[in-house]
Nucleic acid binder design. Structure first.
Lengths: 164, 164
DNA sequence: TGCATCACTATACAAGATGTCCAGTGATTT
DNA sequence: AAATCACTGGACATCTTGTATAGTGATGCA
């Protein structure tokens, strides 16, 4: 009876309903399928199908718990740019991955070869983490900077709102 | 009858059960409270109480949907280090926050003043995003590097496993 | 030593959600 | 015109949730 979304299915990865659903789940991630369907004004089966499709396509990869590292005792977040010996990226990456406090590593263009995000409990602890990184075979130069504040915390919301 | 965790409550932010619970939810985030209690071998009420406590303390901040930006059409991730005019951090941060493709901004020590993570659909699109950033009043210098690969994707698992 | 407190177990019950069907409808494709 | 597709709306049994309560062992404190 109702209906009326714009259905230019596939090709365009996300349509309006997908975006609204993801936005809803972004704001209240523990909502069940039924509650989502009520809020969006569509049938439950539709929400279920959309979620399945998003998961299947790999757009939605899951609902991991978001942890506040600071609240867990990791007061510091720091970034490191490192230059590595030619052809050692694989090995260095593995070495970095073995360090617990290393939260993220990217290979980048530009002067630095690898870019690392890490956390530490204190300055002394950060020193220890840095030392561990320097000790990884293949690491030639490492420069660190500490995050003083985070004016824009990690977000995807604006990209979804753009669709809406 | 059973029991036997180490209960050195509070002070230590996370105990063994907390860590195991968070690890479980990291791996299978859509598990319900009941299923978690079964897997962990504790009573449902215990899991419920732990989750409430973690949420209350702010260690667990929620279960946001994890989106694969690449699958959403944002093929590129890039980082920018920018230097800004003295005393303009607030304003610049707001300007950056207004750009949809800006996913994260940190103020850092070291040469650059702000560090930005952003995404784009293509090289041309990235150019557009960079131009928008340069146009933010107060931005004096901007250098960009593109993420070629991500040897270590964002993770907190190792920090939890350390507790276990 | 003795009592209060705390975290946990174990169980219960009503209310609600989920997984899974299916028939029906309108729009799009062929 | 027929087939296809996404969606609606309803139904059903089964499972989960929110909430409560009594009982147990360990810890803390007077």
């Amino acid at each position: 009876m109702t209906s009326g979304e714009q259905l230019e299915h596939s090709d365009q990865p996300l349509d309006l309903l997908d975006a609204r659903l993801l936005l809803l789940l972004t704001d209240e991630p523990r909502l069940g399928v039924l509650e989502c369907s009520r809020r969006l004004g569509v049938a439950r089966g539709t929400v279920q199908a959309r979620l399945d499709r998003l998961l299947g396509r790999g757009v939605l990869t899951g609902f991991p718990p978001a942890l506040d590292l600071a609240a867990m005792g990791y007061a510091l977040t720091a970034f490191a740019v490192l230059e590595i010996a030619q052809g050692r990226r694989q090995g260095v990456s593995e070495g970095l991955a073995a360090i617990n406090e290393v939260c993220e590593v990217h290979a980048t263009t530009g002067q630095g070869d690898l870019f690392v995000r890490m956390v530490a409990r204190s300055n002394a602890d950060l020193q220890r983490v840095i030392d561990e990184m320097v000790d990884v075979p293949g690491v030639e130069r490492l420069s660190t900077s500490i995050a003083l504040s985070t004016p824009v915390p990690p977000r995807v919301r604006p990209l979804l709102e753009k669709i809406t």
